[in-house]
Nucleic acid binder design. Sequence first.
DNA 1: AATGAATGAGCCTTCATTCAT
DNA 2: CATGAATGAAGGCTCATTCAT
Lengths: 207, 207, 207, 207
Amino acid sequence: MEAKLHRQKAQSDLRRGLMLDAARRVFERLGIEGGSIREIAKEAGYTAGAIYSYFENKEAIYGALLAETLERLHATVAAAGTANQAPADRLEAKASAWFGFFADSPRDLDLGFYLVQGMRPRGLTTELNHQLNDRLLDALRPCETALQSMGLNADDALRENTALFAHGMGLLLLKHTGRIRMFGQDATLLFDAYLISLVERLQKRPG
Amino acid sequence: MEAKLHRQKAQSDLRRGLMLDAARRVFERLGIEGGSIREIAKEAGYTAGAIYSYFENKEAIYGALLAETLERLHATVAAAGTANQAPADRLEAKASAWFGFFADSPRDLDLGFYLVQGMRPRGLTTELNHQLNDRLLDALRPCETALQSMGLNADDALRENTALFAHGMGLLLLKHTGRIRMFGQDATLLFDAYLISLVERLQKRPG
Amino acid sequence: MEAKLHRQKAQSDLRRGLMLDAARRVFERLGIEGGSIREIAKEAGYTAGAIYSYFENKEAIYGALLAETLERLHATVAAAGTANQAPADRLEAKASAWFGFFADSPRDLDLGFYLVQGMRPRGLTTELNHQLNDRLLDALRPCETALQSMGLNADDALRENTALFAHGMGLLLLKHTGRIRMFGQDATLLFDAYLISLVERLQKRPG
Amino acid sequence: MEAKLHRQKAQSDLRRGLMLDAARRVFERLGIEGGSIREIAKEAGYTAGAIYSYFENKEAIYGALLAETLERLHATVAAAGTANQAPADRLEAKASAWFGFFADSPRDLDLGFYLVQGMRPRGLTTELNHQLNDRLLDALRPCETALQSMGLNADDALRENTALFAHGMGLLLLKHTGRIRMFGQDATLLFDAYLISLVERLQKRPG
DNA sequence: AATGAATGAGCCTTCATTCAT
DNA sequence: CATGAATGAAGGCTCATTCAT
């Protein structure tokens, strides 16, 4: 009996996952406002109605997708670097981890950008927004910790971490839109350069 | 005869401009995906159909709006700073100009983001894309020139300018999303800090 | 110019009227909850979207239909009877007028009944409801006046008028549902009988 | 074997009854058009599919519910009054019984109305219609008998009973709509008044 | 007998776009 | 040029119903 329930639950989760995958593919193809429930369903091999057995809303799909992305981001950053690294090396390892995560997976990046635009008016409850923000902060925390290990106090570490994140995001944006190629530059190289000069700057700090 | 044609052309351009103004107001009010042709027409005092005498497409409106934005951006940056400033001061003045332009006018920023994500299918032809890119580069050129005046060669100046642009865009993105507030930071302060450390770094360069 | 506007307005009103007619036919055929915008449009020879140029939403159609019905009812009752009739005769004329109106036009009756059921949850604002009620009271007022002319005070006249209306409505309900045929009776005969005994009762009153 | 079958039948009937109860509760809560099969199933502790083991259709549920309503109506009227009452008193008791039944339980009334209007297509077969009509006539028969006891012949008794039923139904309709409140009247008071003047009229009859 | 998955038709509504006038 | 009418495709969503398990 229990085994049966277990199997059913697993199958259900599997199908939900397949639908999320389909949704990601659709959003990549048609843009995030352009992707419709019908299209997602078709991509997943279902009818529109079937989606509603697994997600309450269209927004619920965004939410699940985002949560999943952040989860993987978190795991990726957590796994980066080695145990007994120098703080500066750890910073580079961790920061490169999240940058690489988004650079390699434009779908995830797209979804992240979506937060910027379409989702404000309707969906994305304040609660969910905070929740997602916390997960993002969690994922970036290792960089902050490394910055503190390098001698920054809490405030300064948060500030530098924010600047670091912004820098990376800006580069990813340019990369994603093809602008960076038009500038004749490479996003990853520029990110590395930023990291290097950041470390340098911190190490030259008085005291 | 010719005078008459001239007058007609002027009137037509005027009306087109009024429609663009209306579009901007509508997008301001309803967001960029939320604004409909009908709404824009009504705001401009016309019927939906009339719009099509001036614009081929809805996407064409976005394009025209963005071109106009870039024009204003260009002018804003060009006007910033004074004639005989030290290069470092000029850099700060010019960079702050474009950053401030977008920080103060989120809808212009929105428009830029939208074009990237929503307009793929028909709207954004490769040609238009290049054209817009060139205008953007034009607008950012003063910063690049300033960087060269500070002793960088052409390649390095372009690289630093790209990084600077990316940094600012990343910050604007975070600001726009409200994320930056959740990080407890201020976008403009961070941008200024970046500028200061950039100048410092360049001035400490050997040779 | 003005003539043109006039003609356009007239045409527009005409089309709106045709749509309302179609709506009535559809509601008669499919029931009032069963009638969809699509069906109404098709019946009128349009696409669903076209309806929305003339009515803001589905409820607005109900509202317009009801208002129109009440208007015709009002006119019908007002026109009934002659100027210098005896009060009792006038009562019979006026009452028979509204009864006949509904008896002859089941569509209108159906719509009236609709108020009973489906429309409570959603549409039918309290305001519209009051408005419609007032129109109904207006239409029935001539009977009330006649009752007063027969010697009843205001309260009694209102009470008797309400009872009279209820009696007629009950009969119309039975007629409409075919029940009355199963009872082997005729609605109009029964209504006349009620009127006769009402008059008789009032005339036998002391005082 | 037979005992087992018997037990199974009893259980089945029980569950069917529980589902009908659930349906009634759901209709009470959401209105008769607003209640869905899913909702009814959930209320009864089942899944939507399970309903179809007990009812062929959604309309079949309405039918069963209405049959049950008529059954209860019948019982209510049968139980009203006492054995050796004067015919006039018995008439009043019996009539008040069915009127009170519907006045106190608007959803039963709703159900009756619904069958008439919404169920045309498949649900209400001619046969079922006749069947329901017979049950209704059965329920009203005691009033007819009382009328005959008061001296009316069969035809007149049926006619008066029909009028009485119509009068009550009309009042219930107005009460149900809230119209009667707008008229400033009370349905039960008006029904009692009708009964009183009916009795009076019959007793004053010549012969 | 009951479940849970899925369907398919339908619902109201919005909107860019076309076109005769 | 501008209008007003109309289209047709699409959107999110609901729901009675079927069916394998």
